[in-house]
Nucleic acid binder design. Structure first.
Length: 309
DNA sequence: AACCTGCCCAACCGCAAAGGG
DNA sequence: TCCCTTTGCGGTTGGGCAGGT
């Protein structure tokens, strides 16, 4: 599948993965963890490039992945998030536990784009799919007519609000601003820089003052201080989705004190289960897939949503 | 049965951001 | 600050399959 091999990858396997390759990769990652993708194939004994291994793991082999059977709730959520975020598949996927960006992207391109297009009163349905031309095998010599980024984006925005381009970022460290209870007997540290991997070890870091310690003007200005630049440095994928909520919260323009207050008042604002920001803790990180569709629906339905969708 | 058409989706690519020396 | 490497993201491709002719 895919394009012709690039010269630098001659000798490597390409295309569909075999069951054996899947097994090798899965066993290796279970034993050694993710990361170091470049070296992984060599160490695992796979004739694949690291990029391919990473993709295979993230999109297919991870144990927490749900496949197929996208529910109505999920579908609705995808549509609404796409209205908000545009083709930010990784961000959208971050709010659908067990779903990958690739799956959502494919689902959108094959199903939802047509559906939303046909539901749009300003764009009457055409005879052919508005998104995809035929990809019949006998048409290989014809110029490809697939979705361009601009096409796709415009299809999402022509008749709707311009999508918000919240920027995702990576995190490698988490800086908890104050009064962090450490598991090793040290009661508190200030502005502790914590290895997020520790958060996955069940350690109960309590950042009770997480919000309370924010300067009032920060709250008034809507910047609940958890942008990656200011509180979370960088991201490691799934954690970053959690940590970036605050960032996106700001990016999405929820910049009034009422919004911050609602965080405090536990309105499940962006989908944490029982997410008091004051209790923002390892539990959240551990449960980062327990996103609540209902609460996301609440978020999207919020009257105070600053954009017209 | 053979061929054609259209769709699905896994996997690829290029690019940009982040990280590190 | 620059440069190189690594990682992640979004767009694109084409093999495989189902259904139609």
């Amino acid at each position: 599948m895919g394009r012709s091999p690039c010269c630098s990858k001659v000798g490597l396997n390409r295309g569909a993965w075999t069951a054996l390759e899947d097994h090798i990769l899965t066993c290796y990652i279970k034993a050694n963890g993710e990361g170091k993708w470049r070296d992984l194939p060599k160490r695992a004994g796979l004739k694949r490039c690291g990029k391919s291994c990473r993709l295979r793991w993230l999109n297919y082999l991870r144990p927490d992945i749900k496949r197929g059977n996208i529910s109505n709730d999920e579908e609705e959520l995808i549509i609404r998030l796409h209205k908000l975020l545009g083709n930010r598949w990784s961000l959208i996927a971050g709010r659908l536990p067990g779903r990958t960006d690739n799956e959502i992207k494919n689902y959108w391109n094959t199903t939802l784009a047509k559906k939303t297009k046909s539901q749009s009163p300003s764009s009457p349905p055409s005879k052919q799919s508005p998104i995809k031309k035929s990809r019949g095998k006998n048409q290989k010599n014809e110029p490809k007519k697939t979705i361009k980024a601009s096409d796709s984006a415009s299809s999402a925005t022509d008749t709707r609000t311009q999508a918000i381009r919240a920027k995702a970022s990576r995190c490698s460290k988490v800086v908890v601003p104050a009064l962090v209870s450490l598991p090793d007997g040290n009661d508190t540290v200030n502005s502790a820089t914590i290895d997020p991997s520790k958060l996955h070890q069940g350690h109960q870091y309590q950042s009770d003052h997480f919000l309370n310690n924010q300067p009032q003007d920060s709250i008034d200005s809507g910047l609940v201080q958890c942008s990656p630049e200011e509180q979370f440095e960088g991201a490691n994928s799934q954690d970053s989705n959690m940590l970036n909520y605050g960032y996106e919260f700001h990016e999405l323009g929820l910049t009034c004190a009422a919004d911050a207050e609602r965080w405090e008042n536990n309105h499940s604002f962006l989908g944490f289960e029982e997410p008091k920001l004051n209790d923002f803790s390892a539990n959240c990180l551990e449960d980062n897939h327990k996103l609540c569709l209902d609460s996301l629906a609440f978020f999207l339905d919020c009257d105070e949503w600053p954009l017209h969708i």
